[in-house]
């Protein structure tokens, strides 16, 4: 029990940090530009595919650096020549633009890499068991993923609080017009933030693509859950994105492990429910099967009871 608890917490935190790598970029982009970027997880997918491609020629370590840069470049071009033009026509147009982009990127991935998963593997140097606790092996690659995620988190924090560009970004979160009137090139800051957010998503794709599977559906698997995280944590709030990522990460990981149902809990307390009882399907439903629904249920409840999310400041 203790063993599975420890590993579940570890995996939950790891999954949460992975979510945060996407959520942080998404929430910053929203906070600054008011753009809800539906295509954010598509940049995560691009990161994984780029990493696969680079690793074929130059190995994993080159991919770790080059793939996020490639994604950042595509992000910058998307903002500069796509979103900025669409921006004049309002938020609905922007939303539809990013929605369209999801399909464009997916189809491009189909064309270039095909519809089946590509063979993107964990590098050999990291393909060993780091330690064994009780009876469970802990792969070194997981520790590496966690390390990258934490490094990235500290990096964002220092960048935003200790550097001037970070302060310009922070100021632009609340009053972009005023930042421009003080002489800062706000459109350029927007491009940088968008590219940076895409790079983070790309980096998440690089380190997760080989751990999970790199396939054209991966954007759709990750996208909705990242939206849950940022809405839950509060749109535009980086702290909220962190807390939201960890809560959703842990909740989902825990739920998958839970094999008990209302009936089994009642049975443990001496109140057995028979298989043919009224609504027996409900009583015997295992919590693990509700797991996938849990984040979206949290999202819906959050929007009803606290629309600005855990730590969001915007009322709109």
């Amino acid at each position: 029990m203790l063993e599975s608890l420890i590993f579940t917490i570890f995996n939950g935190v790891l999954y949460g940090m992975l979510l945060f790598m996407l959520a942080s970029g998404l929430t910053l982009i929203f906070g600054m530009m008011g753009v809800l970027n539906f295509a954010h997880a598509s940049f995560y997918m691009l990161g994984a595919y780029f990493a696969y491609q680079v690793s074929v020629f130059a190995g994993f370590w080159a991919a770790l650096f080059l793939a996020p840069l490639g994604v950042a470049l595509i992000g910058a071009l998307t903002e500069r020549y796509g979103l900025r033009q669409v921006h004049q026509h309002g938020h609905v147009a922007e939303l539809l633009f990013t929605f369209g982009l999801v399909y464009v990127i997916e189809e491009v991935v189909h064309l270039v890499w095909g519809r089946t998963p590509v063979n993107y593997q964990v590098p050999e140097a990291l393909d060993f068991t780091l330690f064994t606790l009780f009876t469970t092996d802990f792969p070194a690659y997981r520790a590496f993923m966690l390390g990258v995620a934490i490094f990235m988190f500290v990096g964002i924090f220092l960048l935003l609080t200790k550097t001037r560009i970070g302060q310009v970004v922070q100021a632009s979160l609340s009053h972009p017009d005023m930042v421009g009137a003080l002489g800062h090139n706000v459109p350029r800051v927007f491009t940088l933030v968008f590219a940076f957010g895409c790079a983070l998503a790309g980096l998440a794709g690089v380190i997760a693509g080989n751990y999970f599977i790199t396939e054209p559906g991966m954007a759709w698997n990750m996208g909705p859950i990242v939206f849950v995280v940022v809405v839950f944590g509060g749109l535009g709030s980086l702290g909220g994105a962190l807390v939201g990522s960890l809560i959703i990460g842990l909740a989902q990981t825990f739920a998958v492990q839970m094999t008990f149902s209302i009936a089994s809990v009642l049975a443990d307390m001496g109140l057995a429910i028979s298989e043919d009882a009224f609504l027996s399907g409900f009583w015997f439903l295992e919590l693990s099967r509700i797991g996938p629904m849990l984040p979206y249920l949290l999202l819906v409840l959050m929007l009803i009871f606290r629309p600005r999310g855990l730590m969001g400041t915007r009322a709109d």
Binding site: Q167, A171, L173, S174, H175, V179
Partner: peptide, 15 residues
């Protein structure tokens, strides 16, 4: 339109 989250000095420096 002061910038929340930044200190008085940081606000001035952004000027």
């Amino acid at each position: 339109l002061i910038f929340p989250g930044l200190t008085t000095r940081q606000n001035l420096e952004l000027g």
